[in-house]
Amino acid sequence: MPTKPAGTLYRGREGMWSWVGHRITGVVIFFFLLVHVLDTSLVRVSPEAYTAVIGTYKNPLMALGETGLVAAIVFHAFNGLRIIAVDFWKKGAKYQRQMLWTVLGLWVVVMVGFSIRHLSLALGGH
């Protein structure tokens, strides 16, 4: 009966799932970036065009979308710094698992802070 291969840095568990998360958040951010440059380019068309399109973003659904996007960015940023530590720090590979839990802990702290501030501004009316 075949036995399961031993875990490695990049197969199974924290190493693989952080890689999956990094890939998915990276693609999401990239496609947002394409749209974001296009909508910002409307400032070159006319003030009304830009302000009108940005105005359609100012609703509760988009506020949640923005929070999700920032969640993707913050995870990608912190996990990217972890990848750099794995590659360049002598003990990086040894502590990659602890660093992932640190990444997730910092991510929760930052996202709680960001969500409270952004959602209270965006949903709180003006």
Partner: peptide
């Protein structure tokens, strides 16, 4: 997004 009135301030 976080400073001042946040997203409400964004316009042309």
């Amino acid at each position: 997004l976080l400073v001042g009135e946040g997203i409400h301030a964004i316009d042309f």
